[in-house]
Design a protein around this nucleic acid. Sequence first.
DNA 1: GCGTAACCTTACGCACGAGTAGGTATGCTC
DNA 2: GAGCATACCTACTCGTGCGTAAGGTTACGC
Lengths: 216, 216
Amino acid sequence: MLARVSSTPTFKRLPRAVREQQMLDAAVKVFSRRGFHAASMDEIADDAGISKPMVYAYLGTKEELFVACLHREGTRMMEAIAGAAAPDLPADERLWRGLRAFFGFVGAHRDGWAVLYRQARGEQPFAAELATMRGRLVEVVAGMLDHALRAKGREVGATDLEVVAYALVGATESLADWLADHPEADAEKTATRMMNVAWLGADQLLRGITWHPPAD
Amino acid sequence: MLARVSSTPTFKRLPRAVREQQMLDAAVKVFSRRGFHAASMDEIADDAGISKPMVYAYLGTKEELFVACLHREGTRMMEAIAGAAAPDLPADERLWRGLRAFFGFVGAHRDGWAVLYRQARGEQPFAAELATMRGRLVEVVAGMLDHALRAKGREVGATDLEVVAYALVGATESLADWLADHPEADAEKTATRMMNVAWLGADQLLRGITWHPPAD
DNA sequence: GCGTAACCTTACGCACGAGTAGGTATGCTC
DNA sequence: GAGCATACCTACTCGTGCGTAAGGTTACGC
């Protein structure tokens, strides 16, 4: 009823693929700002300049929508990292490039990634999804360490390796949180600090030994 | 209506202080298992063997209840750590004792702490609360590093110190998560691994240098 | 120029769960 | 053993927000 006074159609009809991206953009924005539960499908639809049933038609339920966000952002991040850390470099070089790519990504997608990430940790249905992604990262780091160790004819238990990798990934995520909360902070500098902690350790740092990025 | 067939009163009347603890126990359990939103006040009341209005009467709204949980668990943890790491020990010894106390605590309260922690990160209203607690931890670690540095006549910018501490705390939390998810894992061993990463760094570890707990 | 398919809307049903009203039993005090 | 405070209950209200039914409108093929 009261069929809109079609003076201007206000907005054009757009192909599905485009609308889906708009919706995902809006969803990421709203989910980050409000959190999964507090975010309402109405607000997301509104923010995307579209009505709610369209969101359901294209991306499914709220949970599915959130998973779609996670996937898109996660894939983007993984690509950013994978593209930076070639597997045939020495370990320190690889670690450095990976870290730089990671913090660069987070710095550029502050509210996008870091907050989605924080969200997903808590909510049961997504924790598994997230764990898979983190698992891939841990695997990469553990693989790197293993590779470096084998090159020296040394070997370490798989669990040890995994736990060390887990700690490194955790520290990195933690600094990513810090970066997301400090808009004035510099991504490159944060990566350098992370590299110092991860590569040298507290003992060396207390001795005044520091690591600096290569001239590149 | 249908006023309970008072054959057996089923459960005794208990003083407020006792009931409050029972409620908090139940709340921690349910919040951990379900997450803040998915947890229902009915289930918590049920689990505590009490009816819902009692929960409201004693601990207030759902949010207030959750904050009460956070406070109790957080305080317990802080006490466990503070009691272990005397401020006049050398840095490595202090770090080791703090880590051991921390992982010991998490190991003993797996579903209690770690999951409450995971929950609180995401939800807006509690993030601040949590940030304060983490802030205290970061402060302690940063203070420890600063103390050790000054003893050697060296000095470092406050931000650098804070970020390093932040990374260490993050890595530790991350391993705590890992520990909470691996019931078979040993807390002491996890603490040792963390110490290796934090104190020695990847470079040393790759060189085959390792750290071992003192005879104590 | 007309059918059909895809796009898009308004307006609603409905479940779920936080919080409460109002009443009953029990123990403690004098 | 009357009075009073505190412990405790059953059974509701009511907002909120997910998901959908049913119908309008635009583009495109033929």
